[in-house]
Every structure is written in C-alpha cells, then in structure tokens.
Simulated scan of single mutants.
Amino acid sequence: MEIAVLSKFMFDEPSVWVTVATVMTLLSTVYLGFAEIIGSHLQYSKFTNSSAKQAVAAGTKVSSRTGMLMLYTPAFVAGVVSFFVFPGGGVRFFLLKVVVTFHFFKRDFEVLFVHKYSGNMGLGSTILISIFYFYVATSLIVVHYMSLGLPEPPIDLKYVGVIMFTVGIIGNFYHHNLLAKLRTDKEKEYKIPRGGLFNLVICPHYSFEILIFYGFAFISQTPLAFACALGDSCYLIARSYQTRNWYVNKFEDFPASIKRLIPYVF
C-alpha cells in the first residue's frame, strides 16, 4: 500500500545501483546527524575544535573563506557542466539543473561577499563536506537523467518544488545576511543573532536550507532526491540541537523562548 502511494509521487528507480546509492545516501547523512548529537562535530563554524580530542583529530586547518569555497565550488562547477553534458531533457530536468547550479553559486557568492569569519576549518571536514556536496549535485542530476525515459509520476510536484526552492533560497540568504551584520570585519566574537526569524529560532538559515533541499526533491521527484532531502534534514536538525546548546552555554542571557528550527515547536 505504501509503495503504491509513493509511486504517485516518485519516479521508479532506473537501476538497482541507483537504489543502493539512494539507501547509502540516506544512511550516511543520518549517521552524520547522529554523530552531531553525540558531540562528534564536523569541524567548521563554532564547532571547530569543540573539544581537545577533536582539535587533535582535525589536524591541518584552512581559513574559513578558503574552506567554504572548497565546500561549494566543485558542486557549482558540476551544475554548470551538466548543462553541456546533459542538454535537453524537458522542463523538469532543466529546472533541476538550474536550481542545483544556482544554489551552489549563491553559496560561493555568500562566501566571497557576505559572510564574516572568525577562525579556521579542519581540512578533513572540509574535504568530507565538499565531496558530499559534489556527490549531491552530480547524483541529483545524473540519476534524474537516467530516469528521463521512465513514466512521469502521476502527481506533478515540480512547480511546488520551484516555489519551495525560491522561498528557501531567499530566506536562507536573508538570514545569512543578518548573521554577517552582527559584527564588523575586525570582530571575531560570536553574538546572539537578532532580527528576522532569529527572534524565534536560533537556526532559521538551516530551516530554509531544508526547504531548499525539499525543493530539489519536489522538482526531481526521484527517490534519491528525497533521500538527500531527508538526510539533510536529519543532519541539520541534529546540528541545530547542538547549536542551541552551544549558545545556551556561552550566553547566560540567551532567551529561553528561542527554539532551534521551528518557531514555538522545536
């Protein structure tokens, strides 16, 4: 019964290898979320060197600007190249290539012109996240290309996905901009974010990033795209849980009413 319902929303898997990749994608991202919960953080942002053990494990470091460019640029390049390697394919496929490419272009743009930086990033975590984002960009596009000859899902969600992506990209950029305005270029200290949805949740930029990934999923409607969205959600939920804990421990005046991702709920 559940499979019949899902078939109305998703393409069939084009091969058993894609099915394996879908399952592994979901399991690996859920594992990263579990690692965040138990305190084994990826070494970036405020969790760089979050413990003495992780400081040793992090090893070589790169500047945050360089590290973040390493995170997103390969995925952006993959998106650009996809227009030449996989031309055509219809409206849905074109929209998917556009949103994937634009998302990672926007992230590089923010790295260069929006974000303020307070430290370094562990090179190991940087490489791991970069590989993951490159994998997401390429697999979303390649798997959808492999699905082009299959029957379309009876329920078409691609334009709903475009709306979700647009809201997500605007909300994410807006709140990244608010974070950047918290301090000058010379300031390195963290502050409690204010403005926008920061008055209600500590990670609204994560909330909108989750919306972006579900935008990918609704546009593509492949099982792998939904696995990426669900896995990204699990990781960011865990990261937001630890982020709020970090703020509570660092700032005695942190408002108890501020949640993690969903206003008034979580």
Rank of each mutant, 00 (worst) to 15 (best):
191 K>W: 06
188 K>A: 11
167 V>F: 13
161 G>C: 06
196 G>V: 03
206 Y>D: 01
185 D>G: 03
156 D>V: 12
177 N>W: 00
179 L>K: 12
166 T>W: 14
175 H>M: 11
190 Y>E: 11
206 Y>R: 04
205 H>P: 07
201 V>C: 08
207 S>I: 00
170 I>P: 06
157 L>T: 13
173 F>S: 14
204 P>V: 00
165 F>R: 11
180 A>T: 02
205 H>E: 08
170 I>A: 15
190 Y>W: 08
192 I>K: 04
174 Y>F: 12
200 L>A: 04
205 H>R: 04
193 P>Q: 14
195 G>S: 13
162 V>M: 15
192 I>F: 02
201 V>Q: 04
202 I>P: 06
167 V>Q: 00
202 I>L: 07
156 D>F: 15
170 I>K: 11
173 F>G: 15
162 V>Q: 10
197 L>G: 06
182 L>D: 12
201 V>M: 01
175 H>C: 12
169 I>T: 13
158 K>M: 15
203 C>E: 05
165 F>A: 07
195 G>E: 09
197 L>F: 15
158 K>P: 04
194 R>H: 11
194 R>M: 07
186 K>E: 06
196 G>D: 02
182 L>M: 13
173 F>L: 14
162 V>K: 14
194 R>A: 10
185 D>Q: 08
178 L>R: 02
181 K>Y: 05
183 R>D: 08
204 P>S: 01
191 K>Y: 12
187 E>A: 07
176 H>S: 00
206 Y>K: 10
162 V>R: 14
207 S>R: 04
163 I>M: 13
180 A>F: 10
159 Y>S: 09
205 H>I: 00
186 K>I: 13
